[in-house]
């Protein structure tokens, strides 16, 4: 089958247990779709200003980075992923020095991957002192700035990926959501998947300004369903199966629940860099919350 949406994958990894779950998905996708997998490891930021010394995120030790060291790290990564690296896999390994988010984006800029694949926020690279320098997490920065879909595997539960047949697409009817839908339907079509379009109605008083009556909630659900139909159904009909649902509650919880209910293999959502109230840019809102909680890989789409 000519599935070419994941031809080039950039897999950013700490090559430690923290990235194991993401690795499982990365290698599985790469093998299933004959992708070129770039295994990319960022060692850390040079401490001491302009010096050559970095605190290695793997060993937590201060190391002096030179060609020999980079060759050694590359070898270590190969050994770590030995069981995946057989002849059927097309892969390359790159190692860089710097802030993980920035170096991943820099790598993406030259490599132009079809997909960036990241481990979750529990990875120990975030436990370093840089976390405190008001910088924001790797995941958040990459998801915001990447020019391609970003797939995140956070919980181990999201890593038992045995192929794609059910995709859930969460929409908030924004322009970026439309782009995410384009992507979702392309994948669903190419891989003959079912696609479930879902909207979560935010009924938290913080959002609505008041407690909604049940009539109001149900009214809004009907409206949202109409919106989904109008916006997406004509194209959903091209698929072998689809469904459309609206649930009310706290949006990120509802999406996670819905995906679990649907046994989704993949969740696709738009990442909103702008719509988030500026006071709370810490976790870009919904997408990050969904990523943290989801029981399947999540793809965040930004542009």
């Amino acid at each position: 089958m000519g599935f070419d949406m994941f031809k080039k994958i950039l897999f950013a990894t700490s090559a430690t247990a923290a990235s194991d779950h993401a690795a499982r998905v990365a290698f599985n996708i790469a093998k299933s779709y004959q992708s070129n997998l770039n295994i990319f490891h960022v060692m850390g930021v040079p401490t001491r200003g302009y010096s050559q010394v970095v605190v290695d995120v793997k060993t937590k030790e201060e190391v002096s980075v030179d060609e020999d060291y980079i060759a050694w790290v590359t070898e270590e990564i190969k050994t770590y992923y030995e069981k995946y690296l057989d002849e059927s896999l097309k892969y390359s390994i790159d190692v860089a020095v710097g802030l993980p988010a920035r170096e991943i984006l820099r790598q993406a800029k030259t490599m132009k991957p079809d997909l960036i694949l990241l481990g979750g926020t529990t990875g120990d690279e975030d436990e370093t002192v840089y976390k405190k320098s008001l910088a924001g997490s790797t995941l958040q920065k990459v998801a915001k700035a990447a020019n391609c879909p970003v797939l995140v595997v956070n919980r181990p539960a999201a890593s038992f990926w045995g192929g794609l047949s059910n995709i859930v697409f969460g929409t908030d009817f924004s322009k970026t959501s439309d782009k995410a839908f384009d992507f979702a339907i392309k994948v669903a079509k190419a891989l003959d998947c079912e696609l479930s379009v879902f909207h979560a109605l935010d009924i938290t008083p913080l959002h609505t300004g008041k407690m909604l009556s049940q009539d109001e909630i149900e009214q809004q659900i009907r409206e949202s369903l109409r919106k989904i139909r109008a916006r997406y159904e004509s194209r959903l009909k091209e698929l072998k199966g689809y469904s459309m649902d609206v649930w009310e509650g706290i949006p990120f919880i509802e999406i996670v629940k819905y995906a679990r209910d649907k046994h989704a293999d993949l969740l696709i959502m738009a990442h909103h860099s702008r719509k988030v109230p500026s006071g709370d840019i810490r976790l870009g809102g919904n997408v990050e919350q969904v990523i943290v909680r989801a029981g399947c890989p999540v793809i965040s789409i930004n542009k």
Binding site: T47, R48, V129, K132, S133, L134
Partner: peptide, 25 residues
């Protein structure tokens, strides 16, 4: 830059629980 580095390093070395920043961000 130098002060920023030194303060970052002192947090790394002595872990006094501070954050540090340039002015721009």
């Amino acid at each position: 830059h130098n002060c920023w580095d030194a303060i970052r390093d002192l947090e790394e070395e002595y872990e006094i629980g501070i954050r540090w920043s340039f002015l721009k961000p």
